[in-house]
């Protein structure tokens, strides 16, 4: 019979495991320090503000703040969903993000594969740096450059067209040019940056695989197709799953700046609506309801995509 208060064998094992963990943490404390910074960032900027979600169910009062305002249930969701433009906005948002996913997402992978094929290291570094730079430039600047380049009044592209005798085109205002320009500018701005993660995955591929393949007579394309892509596939799938979470977000800055009267039927998206009605119209509760709606759908999409991926490819986020 075991004495009262004596530790069980399980407890002893658990205690020693815990001690081992502490020893490990101590050994890698500098790495844990960096992890802590990231965790702190998430807690402060992503988790703590979650209490603000309640605003979607309240009538916001300046004086009472988020906590003190009165509950109104689903009033603002109803206002939002019964808005005559609701389906148009949802459709526009999904169209833009699906296009970005179909074209922008593979662009990063393809660019990483192309960069990997540059053997001259100095040229490779220059190319990488040049491709990262636009990521750090704000959309305001990018769209201003586009406006200048594509202007029907002395813009670079229209000047070239003019020299061949063609009439100028108002690219930024032609609805037909809206999606191509959204995609081109998105790829130009983000392709370099999104390729980083794939480049690092590629650098982890065992070089012996390539050597063995070359001995067997495989060329460049065969190596890419049969070695590089399968090896980085888990990274690609993980990135894809995370991108699916953005399907309800078309990107506020870019679309807001590129929207105008002529393309408004395409550029009227949820992100812009939230800002216009919420911040400019002072309807914070309605804006929060829009944001929450987007987040819940995104959450469902990520969960579903992850489940499908797990079943089909055995690669998943968790």
């Amino acid at each position: 019979m075991r004495k009262r208060g004596a530790p069980t064998a399980q407890a002893t094992v658990a205690k020693s495991e815990f001690r081992k963990t502490l020893v490990k943490i101590d050994r890698y404390r500098s790495l844990y320090f960096f992890l802590m910074l990231a965790a702190a960032w998430y807690i402060v900027f992503k988790y703590i503000p979650l209490y603000g979600i309640t605003l979607a169910f309240k009538d916001f009062s300046y004086a009472d703040g988020i906590f003190g305002s009165d509950w109104v249930g689903f009033k603002y969701f109803k206002t939002f969903i019964t808005n005559p433009e609701f389906w148009n906005m949802v459709l526009n948002t999904v169209k833009i993000s699906v296009l970005k996913l179909c074209f922008g997402f593979p662009a990063g992978v393809i660019f990483a594969l192309m960069l990997n094929e540059i053997t001259h290291s100095a040229s490779k570094r220059v190319m990488q740096t040049i491709s990262y730079l636009p990521h750090f430039v704000s959309w305001v600047v990018i769209v201003s450059i586009m406006n200048k380049f594509l202007s029907p009044y002395g813009g670079f592209i229209n000047e070239i067209r003019g020299s061949f005798g063609y009439e100028p085109v108002f690219f930024m205002g032609e609805p037909g040019w809206f999606y191509p320009l959204v995609l081109i500018s998105q790829i130009y701005k983000e392709v370099g940056w999104s390729s980083i993660i794939y480049l690092s995955a590629i650098s982890g591929v065992d070089q012996e695989l390539y050597e063995a393949a070359r001995v067997d007579g495989a060329g460049h394309m065969r190596c890419i197709w049969s070695i590089t892509i399968p090896c980085i596939l888990p990274t690609i799938v993980l990135q894809f799953l995370l991108s699916v979470g953005n399907l309800m977000h078309a990107g506020f800055d870019q679309i807001y700046l590129m929207s105008n009267a002529a393309n408004s039927h395409l550029s009227n998206v949820l992100d812009v609506y939230g800002i216009e009605v919420g911040i400019k119209g002072g309807k914070f509760s309605l804006a929060t309801a829009v944001g929450l709606f987007q987040s819940v759908i995104s959450f469902i999409l990520v969960i579903s995509a992850n489940a499908i991926s797990k079943r089909v490819s055995e690669i998943s986020l968790w």
């Binding site: 808005n83 005559p84 433009e85 205002g173 009267a261 039927h265 009605v277 309807k283």
Partner: peptide, 20 residues
Amino acid sequence: DDILTLMQTGDGGLMQRAMY
């Protein structure tokens, strides 16, 4: 309040688009 929200949201830019 509903009319106010409707006027703020507008028609999704249809009237403006008609100009173009």
